[in-house]
Design a protein around this nucleic acid. Sequence first.
DNA 1: TCAAAAGTGTTAAAAATACACCCATGG
DNA 2: CCATGGGTGTATTTTTAACACTTTTGA
Lengths: 232, 232
Amino acid sequence: MLKGTYTYEYPRPSVTVDCVVFGLDEQDLKVLLIERGLPPFAGCWALPGGFVLMDETLEQAARRELEEEAGAKRVFLEQLYTFGDPGRDPRGRTITVAYYALVKLSDHKLHAATDARAAGWFPVDRLPKLAFDHERIVEVARRRLCGKVRYQPIGFELLPPKFTLRQLQRLYEVVLGRVLDKRNFRKKILAMGIIEELDEMEEAVAHRAARLYRFDKRKYDGMTKQGFNFEI
Amino acid sequence: MLKGTYTYEYPRPSVTVDCVVFGLDEQDLKVLLIERGLPPFAGCWALPGGFVLMDETLEQAARRELEEEAGAKRVFLEQLYTFGDPGRDPRGRTITVAYYALVKLSDHKLHAATDARAAGWFPVDRLPKLAFDHERIVEVARRRLCGKVRYQPIGFELLPPKFTLRQLQRLYEVVLGRVLDKRNFRKKILAMGIIEELDEMEEAVAHRAARLYRFDKRKYDGMTKQGFNFEI
DNA sequence: TCAAAAGTGTTAAAAATACACCCATGG
DNA sequence: CCATGGGTGTATTTTTAACACTTTTGA
């Protein structure tokens, strides 16, 4: 991407991508934010993102930014919505294609890669003031996650590869914002037959150790072809 | 929008909107297409759409194109997805924000307004070859409609303001692609209490006339606030 | 031995499904 | 008088919801 002059017959907007990166820890659902170094909104927290290059797809742009700014590689990523109101960027008309990503906070190579700029995980319901219209973007992402988690098995993207049923239940409770009945939850999720019981137990807990499970994606894909529908 | 020269430090893509306009008639679910007059893809059928102007929102751009190219005003319109692969437009990098619209084919001021260019309604599962990646866009729109119609009362946007239960049922059958049980369907939809029974009957049919109903949006909005969830 | 979470079944209520006949109308 | 779709109820199955105690472990 050479800096130079590019001339067009009609004015064109800039196009960016922004990513709402969700992670789950013991306390809450969290969002990864980057502290902006440059104006506009210098010193303000913002979503990781940047300009779309001319020879990359939108998803590639989002993955590139995710890697450059958040150190996140090979994560679940899905297009969210495109925000393009005139005036959303004081520098001039900018259209941003927002994505949301789900990462395993246990993989904590994450903000390591964040070159020199401050990065941090913030509880999704106690965010600092954000740059641009990023608060609205996070809100749309939160709603999408809440809706989608119920009928697609994407929640596993927020957990380590091996997890307990309690972790899984807490995930749904946090994302959906309501408590679930333990026995009914376990019955339902196990009846689906898409999570595999392992011969391993939780370790180093100050109480009875829970069994570990793993999401069986191959089986899920097979069942999906047979008409199975995931639903919590 | 003056034609002239606009110069930037970095290259910028063009940004367009395209609309998948769905309508329902006695036979099928249909999509509105416009015959292209100019290259690329001159003579080919394509979705109505065009460039986003610098001072309008994306939705305004979509509504403007819908009105200019399809004569459709005040219709249900929702953002679908943004398509931006390099190479999807042979003229150069073009990112399109796709919308889908639902219109009442009974309002047939529709393709009237289509200035000089040919427009036509095509069955969604027997489309001609389309320009650009518009086939993919229609496919994404069809899936969105199929998913959304089940948990949001948007189907009514495809029917006249007063409709029979049979029409409503056929709508769901066509969109979902499967048959529904008449008695169970009527039971369920009436039990929701969001459609109002009118003192009017169908006219000029060669069999017993069916009662007309109307979607009660006020009531639906009220119930939604109380936690009601529409579901078919 | 205590605190903390793991694990486990049954019952009742609600929702979904399957299913068939008579009625009204216009041609 | 017949063809066409309108309109209606019940029984069965499935799904969901409510609910409490015993077990295991480490501190």
